[in-house]
Design a binder for these strands. Structure first.
Lengths: 131, 131
DNA sequence: TATTTGTTATACATATAATATAACAAATAA
DNA sequence: TTATTTGTTATATTATATGTATAACAAATA
């Protein structure tokens, strides 16, 4: 799995890692039971610190995407472990609302916005995601 | 215009302010030509520092939502000043993609996601937004 | 028992967020 | 002209977040 980091981005490295791994899960490149690389290995591959990778793994664990075993390392959870619960729903709303607001200010219509979202999902489906 | 801040949120206060004012513009509560309160006044009303409000205004200026005059203060720009340019489009994509990815992981379907977005726009329209 | 793995602990550097205060500079109203 | 209002800039301080470097610890397992 290829992960590209942008060290200039205002998005923290550990969050870029979280996003990349979630993308891997969404596109089925990472399947339930698959093991992520050890923190030291991935850190070395990406040229970042071990603790930065660890922070990303902890995040993914907290979000329910992986489980962490002492020796096996980080393992992708089964689909059932990842639900669209109220917490996620709330987070989604909190993220989407400001985007919708600014879109309206910039006279991007509801339909244009929905079309854009639709295209994003289509792209993910092309990569293997089941939408 | 009523602004509620969450001092516990992980979203910086100045960004919450930016969002609140953009929401005001989207819902037409703030119209082109309207003046925002002086930084000192708004800061005192909200119980935050002057520089925090100033930071929010600078952001809004950089995003093209307001213009700042020495004596008149911050004035809402005309609609034409706020376009859905490439920069915004890119920012929108960068924000939406991770949300779509995580949604798919949590088996929220494309249609469910689009329905949620649609509802958000409907709510904004109820408040006066033209979508 | 040695190895691999995540975890924890220090220490450090840098950047961001937010505050507190004061002084500066421009526009405008008296 | 002068005082007021406004944003701006400058210092200083505090707290938190991000990221690095290194070392030691602890559990699972080969």
């Amino acid at each position: 799995m290829f992960i590209e980091l942008d060290f200039e981005s205002d998005i923290p490295i550990y969050m870029q890692l979280v996003h990349a791994i979630i993308e891997g899960i969404a596109t089925r490149e990472l399947k339930p039971g698959d093991e992520l690389p050890p923190v030291r290995t991935l850190a070395a591959d990406l040229g970042v610190n071990m603790l930065t990778v660890n922070k990303a793994y902890q995040h993914l664990k907290q979000l329910g995407f992986i489980q962490i075993h002492r020796k096996k390392g980080a393992v992708i959870n089964s689909d059932e472990m990842r639900q669209a619960d109220d917490e996620f729903y709330e987070r989604l709303l909190t993220s989407l609302r400001p985007l919708a607001m600014e879109s309206i200010c910039r006279r991007l219509t509801k339909n244009q916005f929905l079309t854009l979202c639709s295209k994003i999902f289509d792209e993910i489906e092309l990569k293997g995601g089941k939408c």
